[in-house]
Simulated assay, not measured.
Amino acid sequence: MTEVKLSDVDLNLLYIYLVLIEEKNVTKAASRLKVSQPAVSRSLSRLREVFDDPLFVRNSHGLSTTARTDQLAPQLKEMMEALETLIQPSEFIPEQSTRRFVLSTTDFGSLTVLPKLLEAFRAQAPHAVLEVKSWDESTVSDMGNAEIDLAVAVLSKEPPAGVKGMRLKSDTMVCLARKGNPHITNGILTLEGYLAAPHVQVVLGRRHQYAVDRALTKLGHKREVAVTLPNFVPAAAVVRNSDLLLTVPKLFAQDFAEISPNLEVYDLPFEAKSFDYSMIWHDRYQHDEAHKWFRKIIYEVFEEYKHLYDD
C-alpha cells in the first residue's frame, strides 16, 4: 500500500466520510451536505482510494460499514469534533477561569490601583489568579517574553514595536508633608519652603533627572535631595516621621494621605508638567478574549478614578 500524506488529502473528504457513516445512505448524505448524489459518490470513490478499502457495502436499505470503517469511525468522529472546536471563536468565561494574569506596576500602582482592581477581578473571576510583579523602565522591553500580561505605568518614551499602549488618566505632581512640618507656612507650601526643605526622591529604573527638577532648573533653582528610595510607600513612610518632603503623583498622595492622618497634600509652588498613566501589553495578546476582559477591568478602575479626582 502506498503511503498517503495528510497534505494530499482534502479534509472535506473526511467530513463527507463521517456523514456517510452517520447516514449510511448516499442520497441522505447528499441532501445533508447540500450537494448532488453523484458528487457524494465521487467522494466515496476517492475515500476508497485513500484508505484502500471499500469502507461501505450496499444493502437493501443503503449502505453498511466494513470492518475498516467500524475501526475508524470513533477516531474520525473525535478528530472532526476537535477540528470544529479548533476553528470556533475563543470564548472566555470569567467565572469558570483558573487562568493566571500577571500585572506589572510600581508599588504606587499596588497601593492605589490594586485594591479596586482586585475587588472587580475577584467578583468576576473568583477562581483566577492575579500576580503582581514590580515595574521599572526596562520592563517594557521585556514584554515579549510572555511573562507579563499587562503593565500599568508612566512611560517616558514611546513603547517599542510590538507593544500596544492605551492612555488611562492624566495626573500631576504634588507634595506630601507631615502635619507640623516647619517648611509649611500657614498651611501653604511656598517656593522658599520647598527649596529650603530636604527631600525624599523615589528613583525608578535608570532615570537620573525628574520632571520636577527640570522645572526647577528652568526657574534657576535646585532642591536638596537627602534620601533616595526605590519605592513610593517606604518613601511616604519616611516623610510621615520626618521633616522631609516627597513629591509624588497626586493619585498616590491622596490615597496614602487617607491612611496616614498625619500627612497633608500640597500643590507644588511652581508649574510642573502633567503626565499620563498608560496600560501596555504585547501585540500577541491583542485579540485574546481573556486579555480583553483583563484590560477592560483595569480601564474601568481608572474611569472610576477620573470620576473621583478629575476636576
Results as ranks from 00 to 15, higher is better:
189 L>G: 02
172 T>A: 09
258 E>L: 10
257 A>M: 00
249 P>I: 01
196 A>F: 08
244 L>K: 15
184 I>D: 08
251 L>E: 11
237 A>R: 15
266 Y>L: 01
178 R>P: 07
231 N>V: 03
198 P>G: 13
268 L>F: 05
173 M>T: 12
183 H>Q: 04
253 A>H: 05
267 D>H: 04
230 P>Q: 10
200 V>D: 03
259 I>A: 11
175 C>E: 01
242 S>G: 10
211 A>G: 14
255 D>S: 12
205 G>N: 15
196 A>I: 03
255 D>N: 07
211 A>F: 07
227 V>Q: 08
235 A>E: 06
243 D>T: 06
191 L>H: 10
196 A>V: 03
182 P>M: 01
192 E>I: 01
230 P>W: 12
202 V>G: 06
232 F>C: 11
267 D>G: 10
220 G>H: 01
248 V>M: 04
228 T>F: 00
263 L>T: 02
187 G>Q: 07
252 F>W: 12
172 T>N: 11
217 T>D: 13
244 L>G: 07
264 E>F: 01
234 P>V: 01
242 S>F: 09
238 V>S: 09
223 R>C: 01
240 R>H: 05
203 V>D: 09
227 V>P: 02
180 G>K: 08
233 V>Q: 14
222 K>M: 07
263 L>V: 00
257 A>E: 03
244 L>V: 02
211 A>R: 13
189 L>C: 03
267 D>N: 13
209 Q>V: 15
244 L>A: 09
260 S>F: 02
257 A>I: 00
245 L>I: 06
229 L>M: 15
257 A>D: 01
198 P>N: 14
262 N>D: 15
212 V>C: 11
233 V>R: 12
178 R>L: 01
216 L>D: 00
250 K>G: 12
198 P>T: 05
210 Y>K: 04
221 H>W: 01
236 A>M: 10
187 G>W: 05
203 V>E: 10
204 L>H: 12
257 A>W: 03
263 L>R: 04
192 E>K: 14
172 T>K: 13
265 V>H: 09
266 Y>R: 00
196 A>P: 05
211 A>H: 09
201 Q>H: 10
261 P>A: 03
178 R>C: 06
268 L>M: 04
244 L>M: 15
192 E>F: 02
261 P>N: 05
221 H>A: 03
253 A>D: 07
266 Y>A: 00
215 A>I: 00
256 F>S: 09
239 V>P: 08
266 Y>S: 00
197 A>M: 07
247 T>Q: 13
247 T>S: 13
262 N>P: 06
220 G>E: 00
268 L>S: 08
227 V>M: 09
256 F>T: 08
244 L>F: 15
